[in-house]
Nucleic acid binder design. Structure first.
Lengths: 362, 362
DNA sequence: AGATGGCACTCGGGTTGTGAGAGTGCTAAG
DNA sequence: CTTAGCACTCTCACAACCCGAGTGCCATCT
């Protein structure tokens, strides 16, 4: 009973099942795939594969379907990567390069993956934590508030309000709502000239730095500045570090959720749990990060129960990092039923990740 | 055959059907609602209501269910608005006021509506077109490019790249991808001092202005500036007007799509068309804008086929505008099956819209 | 005139029974 | 080790069937 043929049988089962969505029996296996042996032989092999946990049968007298373990073996050793053809590549490239800003690029990438794979696409925003600081802007807005705008070198823009009404030494608070009647601010701290100088100093110290290096750089600025300005400078510095460090703001965009409802992907448990899992952006992010740190071709695959999320027990996740010149600044991927076209999905995800990396502002 | 009682019967049918999700017959109608007449009488009324097109029966010998027209009559004349109780109001208020920036506020509003109504929530970003300009920032970034950051008085921040490498007179182009080897820029146009002056002038001219007034204000600045700077100034002005005017960027956020998959809202056509409609953000936006311009309590309702989108033929949309001091800067709402709890949904949407208006940066 | 009770009729949905087909495991032979 | 044959099991599709809910209509009552 040759080991090779057993694997060939597994591959045939996976491919056939992915294609027909129906349990596959020994007869069709010999007919549709050129295995050159009789059904009875196949049956023996299938019994062995089932014993080893690679396939299972939904009920007696139905064909076999691959288990999670079977799919795993398939993607690890049996799947042949099938690169996209040229027109497809071209289409990806032009569609992405027509984007107008970061939001647009990521939105397009999502729609692209959703359309290429016919599944759900997830695209993570470039992590602030991993981005460098490109520019820092200070804008005084009515009263005692300062708008701090942070621009990263991945093109992302974040803004926060800083309340500078509080006296020196007090911890400046992040606010969104005006207190209806705040204390009268000290206008001197907010005049354009002073702000301009502060902005110049902070920018000079911080430009291009990564988050890890920012606190030190800012500390030097705070030390070198006029003592009356020091609290303000420190407030701004803290706010910026806080903004870049907060993983709360690790946003992701979804696309193609409508694909989930298509008839050809019926989930056993209904798609309620899947949709719920997709809304849990925090958990989803965790999953993606975990996934991108896997070795291999750069594309990570989680199959069925391999991902801890219960809602995704019937789905597989294919994800890849992306980012300028080799640095992974974020992750994108595709989510579909475990019974998915792995080679095709992997190829699509990888292709979009590559072109996205190329198109990102550098 | 009293007109009043007929309406009472319609109301009872709607309420019962919304509650039980099953066609309601004459018997249960007399039992569960205190109508004080016999089933036979009810049957006569129902025949009349059916004749008038307010109710229908899915098949012979099943109870009646309301038609779109029936729901319409119900919300217009029969529904009693049921205001939220105090703890609920409190919860909304505190949850919204904990938000940290605009993205967060809108995200929270969405989750709030989704949870209160058990349906899908849509929240439109404050329209740039209706916003005033709070501040304009110019940031030189590597080479011949300028980053223009626009901050509106609704707290929204937009950024665009401007390519200033082209000679005077040429139309500056919006770019996202670097040409690998661009022409050497004229560095003099981008030095900090000049930019600072330009920024100051533009801001002085434009601060607080609405989109409609911007072109004139900018024109005056362009005219009054050093001739060598005029092309640059005009480029920036055009870009800003273009940015604020583009309805392309009218983003919306969705929440609670998982609610669609809950068993209690089975759609006849499946939820595929619904999900697809929700992904068509452009069309969805059109629907919302159309909807908010309706008179009445400030909350607009579209029932079933009333909204043109085919995918939403089995759903109703409840929407309300929101915005600081009476101005509607954007719209938010809830989407669910036509068989929804209209009074409850209307109350929730209205409440969230009000508190959101209060919490927005003014 | 409007409300009511009675009654025949219709129809959808659930239950049951049956037969066909697909697929398997096992055993014995090539 | 492969193959053919065979008995066995189970699902699915189909048909027959009954039951109950609900209706429409008509004669009767107030």
């Amino acid at each position: 009973m040759s080991e090779e043929r057993r694997l060939a049988v597994l591959r045939a089962i996976v491919e056939d099942y992915v294609h027909t969505r129906e349990p596959v029996g020994s007869r069709v296996l010999t007919e549709r795939h050129g295995l050159g042996v009789s059904p009875a032989t196949i049956r023996n092999d299938m019994a062995a594969l089932e014993e080893a946990g690679y396939i299972a049968q939904p009920h007696t007298s139905a064909g076999r379907i691959p288990t999670d373990k079977g799919y795993r073996l398939f993607v690890d050793r049996l799947a042949e990567v099938r690169p996209l053809n040229n027109p497809q590549r071209r289409a990806i490239e032009t569609f992405l390069s027509e984007a107008i800003d970061l939001d647009d690029v990521l939105g397009r990438a999502g729609r692209l993956i959703a359309q290429l794979t016919g599944q759900v696409a997830v695209v993570q925003y470039p992590s602030l934590r991993l981005s460098g600081l490109r520019h820092l802007e200070l804008v005084p807005v009515g009263g005692a508030r300062l708008l701090v705008v942070v621009i990263t070198d991945t093109g992302r823009v974040e803004q926060r309000f800083l309340d500078v009404g509080a006296g020196p030494g007090a911890e400046p608070a992040v606010v969104t709502v005006d207190s209806p009647a705040g204390p009268a601010p000290d206008p001197s701290a907010l005049d354009e000239g002073t702000l301009g100088e502060l902005r110049a100093r902070l920018n000079a110290a911080a430009a291009g730095k990564r988050l890890d290096d920012l606190p030190d750089a800012f500390a030097r600025v705070v030390a070198g500045v006029d003592p009356t300005l020091a609290p303000l400078a420190r407030g701004i510095a803290d706010l910026v570090v806080d903004t870049l460090g907060a993983q709360r703001e690790e946003r992701i965009v979804l696309a193609g959720t409508a694909n989930l409802a298509r008839a050809e992907m019926r989930f056993e448990q209904g798609l309620s749990p899947v949709l719920e899992a997709l809304e849990e952006q925090v958990v989803l992010l965790g999953l993606l990060t975990e996934l991108a740190s896997e070795p291999g071709t750069g594309v990570g695959v989680r199959i069925g129960h391999e991902n801890r999320l219960d809602g995704l027990a019937e789905t597989s996740v294919v994800a890849s990092g992306y980012g300028t010149d080799g640095d992974t600044v974020a992750i994108l991927g595709s989510i579909g039923p475990t019974r998915m076209d792995y080679p095709g999905t992997i190829a699509s995800v990888r292709a979009v990740a590559r072109y996205l990396s190329r198109v990102l502002p550098s």
